[in-house]
Design a protein around this nucleic acid. Structure first.
Lengths: 346, 346
DNA sequence: ATATTGTAGTTAAACGGTTAACCAAAGGGA
DNA sequence: TCCCTTTGGTTAACCGTTTAACTACAATAT
């Protein structure tokens, strides 16, 4: 039924050489094999339609040409957090870059019990990219696997890991400042849970700094922190519309949330930006498709994905002799002004 | 540096048994090994933190615990088509279901030159799910790889493949009928390129049938067929606003396109649904988040993903003795009425 | 002439598992 | 007592590659 798999042995036989010879030309080693033989072998490979087995190869040199991309998953359904297009965009770019170098992407979430380590060693991963923040233990496991790892948007500072991220505090700052510069003084912030140190907190800190710098009093009632989701945005949009008439602007620490806020506001008869201004964060590709087009702080996601992938590939190839400094990448931020922020008193 | 990998041999030595014994308990084979020894071996596995190598295992029994999910990629940047959340939602569900059974997902696009076959045989894939439509040759290759494959939304009818899809013609029909039932008679359709037989054409056919059935003349000027993207939607939205004042409703064969249309319309001063009604297709999770919430025909995407995954797993486990009938899944469709379609003359 | 070096290969031992075939000891009829 | 099972293992071949070590021969150097 299933036509026998063609192996290196078949090729060797067909070309009437040793399998070593075939292996050498396969890996075009500097090992000496005459032009003629090389051609002959290539010929046989073509004719037999030979494709080397990555498993077999991996067995001997501890390699898999596979890199894992780990992204968070929802608590309830254990599904990858794909509602936020941020992840899709990252992955899409990571995949494209690594594929270009002959690697493939293993996409996975991390289960509670099943450790990351399992998949890493059982599959002989060549590297991994972890997007987001995970429980402390996971990072320890990662180190044990002893393969190059790049962390994206995690504030774990351990010389073992490479990092690509953004200056979230600064991001929070320029977002808020943009609002202030447009005359707003009653500015709310919608964000995720601030308990955990990380992205969310930094952006929040930036928000506070901008406020302070402008001499605007910080009010804890104006921070709506729960989860980074459309739903939470929607809830706070409704809340603001109903109970906070004095608020004229809100900074959402993720575009998805901004969408939710705008939606909640609209449902309650408030229009954006006429009644309330909203600024997002990320600039996912949907930001400009939304109506009204979302003003947001852009963190060139595509670029971020590419950099993460490239950083990983470099480590893999260079056998991780990269210095700690070389392993830190901060991608730049900028606010892109579209249609959801209105100038006050203008 | 890198602590030596612990192998089955280490476990055997530690438990003072043969490696065969270890292997047997690992695969809890029916082979007889005493309770005591089993316990002993499990103990050793725990202590040494042993994790079997999938590559090694795969080498002997032609397996990889890996399934590939292939999705289309953009021509220009060779990036996965992730702008459309449809794919994210599918993948997320596929990943969750197969992981539950110990499989992992290899996410990839298909390059022009690099054949799918390469990755399939070199990686010893256990199965694959192809989402969307691909060049004819690809399917031939797939068959050669000789592993279970499920096709999603492809109108390839070959007994080799399992299929999960929807009745697109019917979908096009009910979408259009919904518009007609609401009193519309000048109905445009925005869709992808209709040349290729497949999803796009079927929906288009359904559109025509509904028109005909209602005694409405089909007008070719009303079909805007180019590509399934926000941009194309946007373009046709603008076009309709400017040059087709008589059109009162449009059927977009994908939600992303519907969003684009609405945006184009709005930019030209037309509001939805007051001036023009729009119905989408897919019911991606963003459909209800959009403003105004999109009326669309729902194809339970999560369910679709799960079914596809389950179908594949069944084939893998049952050593593909599934009959042709068992390999066809059609998921049901329904129009979900939200806020973008208005009743005319009401 | 002998020794040295280079070229173009080949042999065989890993890599980490699986599994068919074999074996030893104990228990159970007859 | 002898033979037959059953139980609980072990041995060794094999899966498809890589690669260090070896060989054989020709050419060059001494």
């Amino acid at each position: 039924m299933s036509k026998k798999k063609v192996t290196i042995r078949d090729v060797a036989k067909h070309a009437d050489v040793s399998i070593a010879a075939v292996s050498y030309v396969l890996n075009n080693k500097e090992h000496k094999v005459s032009e003629d033989t090389v051609a002959l072998i290539h010929q046989s490979i073509k004719e037999l339609n030979y494709i080397p087995s990555i498993s077999a190869r991996g067995l001997v040199n501890n390699t898999s040409q596979l890199i894992a991309v780990i992204i968070p998953q929802t608590e309830e359904h254990k599904q990858l957090v794909f509602q936020n297009p941020f992840y899709s965009e990252m992955i899409s770019n990571i995949e494209a870059t690594v594929r270009h170098d002959g690697y493939h992407v293993l996409l996975a979430g991390v289960e509670k019990g099943k450790s990351y380590l399992d998949i890493s060693v059982s599959r002989n991963l060549d590297g991994a990219i972890l997007i987001g923040i995970y429980p402390e233990e996971l990072y320890e496991e990662c180190k044990q696997a002893n393969i190059p790892i790049v962390l994206v948007d995690s504030y774990i500072h351990d010389h073992y890991f490479a990092n690509v991220g953004i200056d979230d505090e600064h991001g929070g700052y320029i977002a808020t400042k943009h609002l202030i510069d447009n005359g707003h003084t009653h500015i709310a912030i919608a964000t995720g849970s601030i308990r955990r140190d990380g992205v969310v907190e930094k952006r929040f800190l930036g928000y506070k700094r901008a406020l302070q710098e402008a001499g605007i009093a910080y009010r804890s009632e104006y921070v709506f922190g729960e989860s980074v989701s459309f739903e939470h945005g929607h809830d706070t949009g409704c809340l603001i519309a109903k109970d906070f008439p004095e608020i004229t602007a809100v900074f959402a620490t993720a575009d998805v949330m901004a969408f939710g806020i705008i939606r909640g506001l609209m449902e309650n008869g408030l229009s954006v930006p006429d009644h309330i201004s909203v600024i997002g964060f990320d600039d996912i590709s949907w930001a400009h498709m939304f109506f009204p087009p979302l003003t947001t702080v852009r963190q060139h996601i595509a670029n971020k994905g590419q950099q993460a992938a490239q950083l990983l590939l470099n480590q893999i190839r260079s056998n991780k002799l990269l210095s700690t400094e070389e392993k830190q990448v901060i991608v730049p931020l900028e606010v892109v002004s579209r249609s959801t922020v209105r100038k006050l008193n203008g």
